[in-house]
Design a binder for these strands. Structure first.
Lengths: 144, 144
DNA sequence: AGTATACTCCGGTTCTCCACTGGGGTTTGC
DNA sequence: GCAAACCCCAGTGGAGAACCGGAGTATACT
């Protein structure tokens, strides 16, 4: 019922990378981690997962780092969360021994999951970036 | 992102109690547990929680047991899950040190949570009971 | 009254997973 | 060649889920 810190870290990292997609300049783990207060050795693992999922690319060696594999508006939050959280392949095994009540509950569980996925599916990285910009614009308005 | 076995157990127990609401006859923990393959000592704790939340009533002593506190169509799945899962009072403390990106993500997290709660809110115990009956009816149709 | 049957309360135990850390590597730019 | 980066894999600590046990208490039935 709760999205883990893992997914939040991954999203934060991708949000950091989003503005740099156009320039093609990579960002290093250390920079992202210090910017968003994420333990860097942990973020490293998450970025590795994102790379294997094809969401980011990495450049090795000195002056290396990470960059988005495709446009920020072509990556949905569902893409990120699903590959980090590692769901799908949720074939619950006890299908045979389940009572009819348990089956009905499983259906509702699926509906809940689907509702959550729909929200994530409809939101892209670019949406979040613009939302953040709007927030800050709002703050400035009130600051003046 | 996933509903725990805890919530499923609680729901199963309440589904067992639902048909007996009209008669006012209590069901014992053992009966419910064996019917739904739930460890009985564990179910005991869950029913205690449900009782404190005002969803079930208990009768102590011989011939005692549990019964629903109100009509099955006046209890939503949200009522059950929220009191079992123990959410609400989710005041995340790190509001001050959060980056603007983290704030935007928190908003989306809230939307996801809300979408899930809406599904649970719109579904009552009675809905599930009827859904189960419909399922079995369906099976019989094909059996004949 | 006595006993069996239930719930009630409180504590402990085991197990899994998340978040995080560490120690090696390998690749690349200068 | 050396430092800066990524890469891989193997842990550790704590929290919570799932579960078990025992002593206590209320009630029905005889």
């Amino acid at each position: 019922m709760d999205l883990s810190a893992k997914s939040e870290y991954a999203l934060l990292a991708l949000l950091e990378l989003s503005p740099h997609y156009a320039s093609g300049e990579p960002l290093q783990i250390r920079q992202i981690a210090s910017q968003q207060n994420i333990p860097d050795r942990y973020l490293e693992q998450l970025l590795a997962t994102l790379r294997r999922a094809g969401l980011v690319k990495s450049l090795r060696g000195a002056r290396g780092g990470y960059l988005l594999a495709r446009d920020p508006w072509k990556i949905t939050l569902y893409d990120v969360v699903s590959c980090i959280e590692g769901f799908e392949a949720q074939t619950d095994p006890a299908q045979g021994s389940a009572t009819p009540e348990a089956l009905v509950i499983q259906e509702v569980w699926g509906e809940v999951r689907q509702a959550a996925e729909d929200v994530l599916q409809k939101c892209t990285l670019q949406d979040l970036v613009e939302k953040r910009n709007a927030q800050q614009q709002h703050d400035i308005m009130y600051y003046i």
